[in-house]
């Protein structure tokens, strides 16, 4: 699935990484616990989370993820957006709740391998 399709499906605002919207991602992972995310080394392209702090971006960086989706209309700080930009991670913000966001992505073919 393209990052652009994720943004469309979740009616999400693109906070940074517009140039990455055509990139393909194979699977995703939804969690508010960063240590759980870090426990699975697989090629997850997307992190869906309701947690907002700079460790979310660093966790995504450590896992070589390409995109972070903030649910429940959470907004990252300008510093977080800057950190994401520097490290080529697209940030999306959606009003969907976690369950709904993950469900929509899963239903449209974004798997969860390794999550």
């Amino acid at each position: 699935m393209k990052i652009r399709e994720i943004a469309t499906l979740l009616d999400a605002e693109v906070l940074c990484g517009e140039q990455m919207l055509e990139e393909e991602v194979q699977n995703a992972c939804g969690s508010d616990m960063m240590s759980d995310v870090l426990a699975y080394v697989k090629d997850q392209g997307v992190l869906v989370t309701g947690l907002v702090n700079s460790q979310v971006i660093r966790t995504a960086m450590m896992m070589d993820m390409h995109c972070v989706v903030f649910v429940r209309n959470k907004r990252p700080s300008p510093e977080m957006v800057e950190l994401a930009k520097e490290n080529h991670i697209a940030l999306l913000a959606s009003e969907s709740r976690m369950y709904e966001a993950c469900g929509k992505l899963y239903q449209h073919g974004l798997g969860s391998e390794g999550c």
Partner: peptide, 16 residues
Amino acid sequence: ALGFGAGMGLPNMKRY
């Protein structure tokens, strides 16, 4: 509340 404290860090470090 900051997303840590699952008790997974040390086991992860060992695994990786």
